[in-house]
Amino acid sequence: MQDALVAAGVPPPEAAVAAEVLEWADLHGVSTHGIGRLKPIYIDRILAGILKPTAPFEVIVETETTAVVDGHGGLGLYIGPKCMDMCIEKAKKHGLAMVVTRNSTHYGAAGYYVDKAQEHGCIGITGTNARPSIAPTFGVQPMLGTNPITFGMPSDDPFPFILDCATSVNQRGKIEKYAREGKPTPPGQVVDRDGNVRTDTEGILKDLQTGYCSLAPLGGVGTDMGGYKGYGYATVVELLSSALCSGTTSPDLSGVDKATGNKKAMPLGHFFIAIDVERFLPVGEFKNNTGKFLRQLRESEKDPKGPGRIYTAGELEHEGTIAVEKNGGTLVPEALQRDMLAIRDKYASIKDKYAKFSFE
């Protein structure tokens, strides 16, 4: 991944950071945000001229505990980690810190950032806006991104508490999985411009591309199951990611020029918060308090019709890491193999180095 990004014009130190973010996802079982994103989200966008392989990292406003950063359309996989590092450094000096970023691009798995914070004895929080896909409650037009809000806290468990959730009921990737399995999309997850709750998976995927369909916020279409709550959370993430840094809002992040139909840049906004636990109590005590309660949750009475187990956030990712170690690596599906070969064959600087890998 690092070599491919360097071949695409990313400076080697920045490519190393970016590859680390993608690797973190695959090593934690979050394959949706790992090497599978390398070609379509990063390399292809660099080739299309809508993502800059390198750009100035400009601090617009800064205090001891805050900063506003402009990424100038550069690689979010580098901009994001640098902002989180700034945030952690400020928090360790002053207790709490927040950094907001505008004109960035897709920054990978949000869990990476809060994991980085908890490794330094901090509570980490991050969020980002994204291309419009969620319709507001009682609306039918995609106006908000899937806008994840993510928390990370150190624990004395073998894994930290990391909650990384989109503010939509589902994401396009899950609907694509329904399509592969030949299953309908469960009702309440998608609404179209005529106000119809859709379940026809193939039609949904087609209409999501044109904006005729929208994903529902957490809670689903309408208010019966609390959809207004997910709508509200998505809006909070949007405001912290754009309004606080005068960045671009989700409705203008479609990635398509309406006048020409051509692809265009998507200048995303992110926010990062770090809270130094030691300003409240010894970090070891906090880890013990956290782990003790999480274990109480996992040991509580199980649903007799369920899987016989209760999970806490971060546990599945931890098990993903164990599986990767046990298997000696991650599974590379055929489609991803083809992407990797295409990247290799595109760049003369890495073609010879990886010539022996046919993935056949």
Rank of each mutant, 00 (worst) to 15 (best):
H106L: 05
V256K: 04
G36L: 08
L27K: 14
A109H: 05
H270Y: 07
S254M: 11
K52L: 15
K93P: 00
A342V: 09
F359D: 05
K90F: 01
D207C: 13
G139D: 12
G139R: 10
I310A: 10
R295V: 06
I60R: 02
T330G: 13
A313G: 11
I88H: 09
G220V: 10
M98K: 00
A15Q: 09
E301L: 08
S168W: 04
G73K: 15
D224L: 15
K90W: 05
E89N: 15
R45D: 14
E319K: 10
V59L: 09
A179S: 15
K356M: 06
L163M: 15
G226Q: 13
G291H: 11
A18E: 14
P251Q: 08
P40R: 09
P136G: 04
L96K: 02
V100D: 02
K292N: 12
L75M: 15
S155G: 07
D207M: 13
F161I: 11
T199Q: 08
K351A: 11
L244M: 07
L27P: 08
V169K: 03
F359V: 01
E238F: 02
H33P: 00
D345N: 08
E23N: 15
I43L: 09
E238H: 06
T63C: 00
I79C: 05
P187C: 07
P132R: 03
K292E: 11
E317A: 06
E181A: 12
T290E: 11
A323H: 12
T330F: 15
T167K: 01
R338H: 14
G34R: 00
S155W: 05
I123R: 01
A355R: 04
K264Q: 08
